[in-house]
Computed example of a mutant assay.
Amino acid sequence: MQSVLIVITQGKEAFQRVRSLFHMSQVLAQQEETQVELLFLGPGVEWLRSNQRSSPLVAESLDQLRRTGIDIVACEVSLEAFGVEENNMLPARKVKGAVEMHKLIGQGFTVLSF
Rank of each mutant, 00 (worst) to 15 (best):
1 M>V: 05
3 S>I: 06
3 S>V: 04
4 V>H: 09
7 V>D: 09
8 I>H: 03
14 A>P: 06
15 F>H: 13
15 F>G: 04
15 F>S: 10
15 F>D: 11
16 Q>E: 13
16 Q>C: 08
18 V>G: 00
18 V>P: 01
19 R>L: 10
20 S>T: 12
23 H>D: 12
23 H>S: 11
25 S>K: 06
25 S>I: 04
26 Q>N: 13
28 L>M: 15
29 A>M: 06
29 A>Y: 04
31 Q>H: 05
33 E>V: 08
34 T>P: 06
35 Q>R: 14
36 V>I: 00
39 L>C: 02
41 L>F: 15
41 L>C: 06
42 G>I: 09
42 G>Q: 12
43 P>D: 13
43 P>T: 09
45 V>D: 04
45 V>Y: 05
47 W>Y: 01
50 S>D: 06
50 S>F: 02
55 S>Q: 00
56 P>S: 05
56 P>H: 07
57 L>Q: 11
59 A>E: 15
59 A>I: 09
60 E>D: 12
62 L>E: 03
63 D>P: 05
64 Q>G: 11
64 Q>L: 13
65 L>G: 06
66 R>A: 05
68 T>W: 14
69 G>V: 01
71 D>V: 11
72 I>T: 02
73 V>M: 00
74 A>F: 03
75 C>Y: 09
75 C>K: 13
75 C>T: 09
76 E>F: 10
76 E>D: 12
77 V>T: 14
77 V>R: 15
78 S>L: 00
79 L>P: 05
79 L>R: 01
80 E>P: 06
80 E>F: 11
83 G>F: 08
84 V>K: 06
84 V>D: 02
85 E>C: 09
87 N>R: 09
89 M>T: 10
94 K>P: 00
95 V>C: 03
95 V>W: 01
95 V>P: 02
95 V>D: 02
96 K>Q: 15
99 V>Q: 13
101 M>G: 07
101 M>Y: 15
102 H>L: 12
103 K>F: 12
106 G>W: 05
108 G>I: 01
109 F>K: 01
110 T>I: 05
110 T>K: 11
110 T>Q: 08
110 T>L: 07
113 S>W: 09
